[in-house]
Nucleic acid binder design. Sequence first.
DNA 1: GCCAACGTTGGC
DNA 2: GCCAACGTTGGC
Length: 154
Amino acid sequence: MRYWLMKTEPETFGVEHLGAAPRRTSAWDGVRNFQARNMLRDEMQRGDEAFLYHSSCDVPGIAAIMRIAKSGYPDATAFERKHHHYDADSDPANPRWFMVDVQLQRRLKRVITLEELRAHAARELKGMVLLRPGNRLSITPVEAAHWKFILTLE
DNA sequence: GCCAACGTTGGC
DNA sequence: GCCAACGTTGGC
């Protein structure tokens, strides 16, 4: 089992959108970056766990834990002409973009902020992809040791 | 294959 | 709103 961190803007798709109904799953659509696509398509497996990270907001940070409920499958929004994420170059016979289904496991008791994570960047969280300068990837792998440490901050 | 121009991301 | 850091595009 692997661990991931998935970024989202809370106003667009935050923890509230995942929530409420138990066992509800949501498709993580709209990823239009090849590196992230490769992870969605090739690496993320059902049962993996992922931090839900809120970006572009007042307090960026980790807000919840999700479980991958379904491994990668074609992102159908790429084929919908009217859709915000439409991509004319994605051929339904050979889809370019992929998504996974996620399921909320639990909200964290509090948001673990980017600032806090950065405070440990030189030691406990050394090498964490999220903290690398210039990183913009919306999906990043998380090492098991980092995952555990972050939960101790909660 | 190079690289400049451009668009996007995302913290601040 | 600013801007650095990337990714993508497209001319050559």
